[in-house]
Simulated assay, not measured.
Amino acid sequence: MTPGATTFRFLAPTSTAADGTVVTATAPPAAIAGSGYVFRLHIDNRSTVAAIDAPALAGGSATDACGFLLYDKGQAPGEKTAKIRLAFHATHPANHAVFAFDVRRATTPVIDVDAEVSAAAAGGFIGDGDGNFSASLLRTQLLGGCEKGAFAEVLRVLPKATTGWGQRITAYDSYAVRAFALAPQ
């Protein structure tokens, strides 16, 4: 038996109250077809990927097996403008994710970038639209007033998957951490 307008109403969730109560309203007539409630559901339960490349001197060496990136302190006048390449990969198969990339020198924040994985640029990093980002930074941007420094790079990639009630599904999150030290030879 088909439910009638006077005997049955389809309800649609409209929001969630602060206490977790789901607020509903009568489903609009356009959502009713063939005696049933019609709604679209998009499910994307694919995982994200987080990876951080080894930092490298522009056109030169990358960090060694012990995590040191050594620069030539006695180089000519442009030596303080020598670039260091940082790169990371925050990916999701359909770009349904956001990322946070942070670099700390000891406890001092140096870089904090939050963006969509599909971004073409984020906080000085150039992206390819698929979650691959890189930047060439001045040595002084990383070291500040220090001659040498120890750094931590932390990448968090968070898919946009939710329970449908506003809570994120964290099972598909991914993380990467890399440490390196920047010091004169």
Rank of each mutant, 00 (worst) to 15 (best):
A150I: 11
T14M: 11
T81A: 13
P29G: 13
G145S: 14
C146D: 10
K83N: 05
D112I: 01
G59S: 06
H92M: 10
C146Q: 09
A94V: 13
I84H: 00
A51H: 00
Q75D: 14
F151I: 07
H42F: 09
D128H: 14
G36N: 00
A120H: 04
F125L: 14
D112N: 04
R40E: 06
V23S: 09
A50V: 13
D53H: 13
S35K: 04
A65P: 04
R85I: 14
V38C: 04
T170M: 04
A122N: 12
A33T: 13
G131W: 03
A100C: 03
N45M: 02
L70H: 01
I43M: 04
H96G: 08
P109T: 02
R105H: 07
A33I: 02
P13D: 00
A135G: 12
R139K: 13
F88C: 12
L11R: 08
R104D: 08
L158V: 08
S15R: 03
R85M: 03
L137W: 08
D53L: 15
F39V: 01
H92K: 09
T26W: 06
A161H: 00
N95F: 03
V157C: 08
T91Q: 10
A135N: 05
F180W: 09
T6A: 07
A179I: 06
T48H: 08
P55N: 07
P77H: 09
S61M: 10
V23Y: 06
V110Y: 03
A27G: 07
V154D: 09
G123T: 12
R168F: 08
T63N: 02
A176S: 13
R104P: 00
T108C: 07
A58I: 02
Q141S: 12
A121G: 06
A90W: 02
T108S: 04
G78N: 15
G149D: 07
D64T: 06
R85C: 02
P184V: 05
G4K: 08
F39N: 00
K160H: 10
G4T: 10
A76Y: 07
A31R: 05
L57I: 11
K73A: 12
D19H: 15
S136I: 09
D173E: 15
Q75A: 14
R104V: 04
A33W: 04
